[in-house]
Nucleic acid binder design. Structure first.
Lengths: 250, 250
DNA sequence: TAGATTAGCTACCGGCGAGTATGGTCCACG
DNA sequence: CGTGGACCATACTCGCCGGTAGCTAATCTA
């Protein structure tokens, strides 16, 4: 699969112009997966029939089966499309020379972005009861990889002094839970992007609820819901490294 | 409904001795709902048939329908059973003379307890796509009530100085998300209770990731997983075993 | 131009599971 | 003692949906 992650492309279906057939099987296949993701997102996995997906693409069910073996695989592919970015971010975080808290923040930003994406729902809510044992195992392995990566960053941060001592396991659960839950309430219509939401969450997690005398409450991320421009200067040492790095789309 | 919330009662069914019929309708009705919650918890809503639920109670499907009008209502009742405790806690928090952060903490403790309960799954994952519009509206209203209650506590805490300034809406999302997600990974088998987990989360949220010079790291909740059973397996995204796709064999 | 390959459609099957029709059994009460 | 109602089982119906068979038409290849 090549560039499934990008951009809310308009729902135009590649079948439309039957004249200039792209004959690019991969493009169509991705369109099927994206349509499935959108449908799952709206109606849930079990309430979505393959006829629905086909209708959204203005084709019929056998056509969908021409690109995909079964419904389960459709869900699986959506999951992969969503989680791949996070895995990349986790791997990347290990090879950087920054305090662990900064590397963790970069991971969380990508995490939030992925969860708020088109595939966020599938990524977060794919129940392994709906998948065959081997696919379920795949998914569990990937989720575990991410979880362990976050725990490791927490441990490293505790050791290098950039993170307050805490239970890495439980803290990772709390962080991942807060971010995962974005998929339940986020709709693109709202003002904020996934990255912005992640940024706001990160501020909450970093600062904590208990007042910190030293820190001003002028921090723009603490103002209620304006969508400021990206305010790159407010916090010293904020790593734009992760942001500047272009998404690897191949 | 009387006391559905209590205690992981053994899965004994009140029908057991068909000889000594209890003939207590309310008791049986609650047993049905609890059995449904357990089944949904294990296999998911859509993968659970009413025959499954009936079988768990050692009765047949019409018996279930004798106590409940349809499957949807079953899910709804489970939801109510789970969320009622949180609503009560939110209401109670308004009539106390404590700093808002303390009242918020009390709410979050009840929240975590509810999410880790038998009905946590139903409460958290009841998709409103699976419910009729009016039931969905009920549920949304209750969820909103809780959300608004948390936001209010945050605002009050910011004003009385017990909570560091933050965006109440986003912070409420982060808190609720972290706690909701407990339902995805928590299994009673593990060592911690729901309240204990909530307590740990609260510590994380209060303190924040950034180091606080004043605070000792001797806080027992910050030690990694004091009473560890065979941990190392559970992780946030992956609800554990739950033998996938167990079909009702007849 | 003939066969092969690609891509899509119409029309169907099979079963699973929600919900029901019907009737039997046990108890309470008169 | 028989009658009504509460309670539960057997044995269905029926619609939906995942998946398939088999055809057609276009394009490619040689």
């Amino acid at each position: 699969m090549s560039s499934l992650k990008g951009t809310g492309s308009p729902p135009a279906s590649p079948w439309r112009a039957s004249r200039e057939r792209l004959r690019d099987r991969e493009v169509k296949r991705e369109a099927v997966i994206r349509a499935a993701a959108r449908a799952f997102n709206r109606k849930g996995y079990h309430n979505t029939s393959l006829d629905d997906i086909a209708a959204a693409l203005e084709v019929t069910k056998p056509t969908v089966y021409y690109y995909v073996t079964n419904k389960e695989q459709l869900l699986f592919e959506c999951f992969i499309a969503g989680i791949e970015g996070i895995r990349a971010a986790v791997r990347e975080a290990r090879s950087q020379a920054l305090p662990a808290r900064e590397r963790l923040k970069a991971v969380l930003r990508h995490y939030g972005e992925a969860v708020a994406s088109e595939f966020g729902w599938c990524m977060v809510r794919a129940e392994d009861q709906d998948l065959s044992p081997d696919m379920s195992a795949h998914i569990k392995a990937m989720k575990s990889e991410i979880d362990q990566g976050i725990r490791r960053l927490l441990r490293e941060g505790i050791q290098d002094g950039s993170i307050h001592p805490c239970d890495p396991k439980m803290t990772a659960f709390a962080l991942a839970g807060a971010l995962n839950w974005i998929a339940h309430w986020y709709r693109e219509s709202q003002g904020m992007s996934g990255t912005e939401i992640a940024e706001t969450f990160i501020t909450v997690f970093e600062t904590g609820l208990k007042p910190r005398p030293g820190i001003s409450n002028e921090d723009p991320t603490c103002r209620p819901m304006n969508r400021r421009a990206k305010s790159s200067s407010s916090r010293p040492g904020a790593p734009r490294s992760a942001r500047s790095r272009e998404r690897s789309r191949r």
